[in-house]
């Protein structure tokens, strides 16, 4: 192979999102906004599953809230004709993520499963990723948060308790994905099947508005759901190529 073609190969690979030619799994979530009731069960479930601290009233007033998933509310019209719509917003796991390009220490990068990772022990807390994130879903630990006794007893041992000066965000419940892969290996399977993994938010959704799965499996529920004609992606015009699809019937 000539030097030039090798260079072009490397260049093309470098230009690919996440530097992967092909993802192993391609974890994707769809959120059916026509089904979402805005009950915030997902927020609570996420808080419990991922050891997210309760920062308190004062800190929230300073804009230092911590919620890996939040339900945004949009009001249309005036009372009594007001209309309320919800949009659950979490890390979109963009395949061309702006936050990954900016991290000076490589604490956030794209892994082989199409996930946008956050490695806490590598993070030095520049907060540049939070500035670059168009969805505003990265949260910074301004303090070492403590849990009032006996709440520290309910921390999830599978998830690291983050310390001061570390950025954090939704991981698509990586601990559950790892667990599912572990179980798959026990059963002498290489692949995780559709329905084996459910992040905490998907599991808790009472109206089944959230669907999670592997996009590469064309039989999967999430593949059918993401090809629904109602689908759109938030801030798609930024070309972030995000992995979270929203379904919403637009009122004409």
């Amino acid at each position: 192979m000539s030097l030039f073609s090798r260079f072009m190969d490397g260049w093309r690979k470098y230009r690919k999102p996440g530097y992967y030619d092909e993802f192993d799994y391609h974890w994707t979530m769809t959120i059916d906004l026509d089904k979402c009731t805005g009950c915030e069960a997902c927020v609570t479930a996420c808080q419990a599953e991922n050891n997210i601290p309760i920062v308190g009233e004062e800190e929230i007033a300073k804009g230092r809230e911590m919620q890996w998933i939040r339900v945004e509310r949009y009001w249309e019209g005036e009372y009594p004709n007001a209309k309320l719509s919800f949009i659950p917003m979490m890390c979109q796991h963009c395949d061309a993520a702006p936050c990954e390009t900016v991290c000076p220490v490589g604490a956030t990068y794209h892994n082989q499963d199409g996930l946008n990772t956050q490695i806490y022990n590598r993070c030095i807390g520049t907060r540049a990723c939070a500035v670059y994130c168009p969805y505003e879903v990265r949260y910074f630990n301004y303090y070492d948060h403590e849990w009032d006794s006996p709440l520290e007893q309910q921390l999830n041992p599978e998830v690291t308790v983050r310390g001061k000066g570390v950025m954090e965000k939704c991981t698509f419940c990586i601990q559950r994905i790892r667990e599912a892969k572990d179980v798959a290996k026990d059963d002498d399977r290489r692949r995780v099947q559709d329905g084996d993994v459910q992040p905490a938010c998907v599991q808790s959704c009472p109206s089944k508005a959230l669907v999670f799965g592997d996009r590469k499996d064309t039989e999967s529920q999430v593949y059918q759901s993401m090809n629904d004609p109602r689908n759109y992606r938030v801030l798609d015009e930024l070309n972030t190529d995000s992995s979270v699809f929203y379904l919403k019937k637009v009122d004409a």
């Binding site: 990068y109 082989q112 499963d113 490695i119 590598r122 690291t160 790892r178």
Partner: peptide
């Protein structure tokens, strides 16, 4: 397989 991905051990 994918053994050097950070999320193999850190999560």
């Amino acid at each position: 397989v994918n053994g050097t991905d950070c999320w193999t051990c850190h999560k």
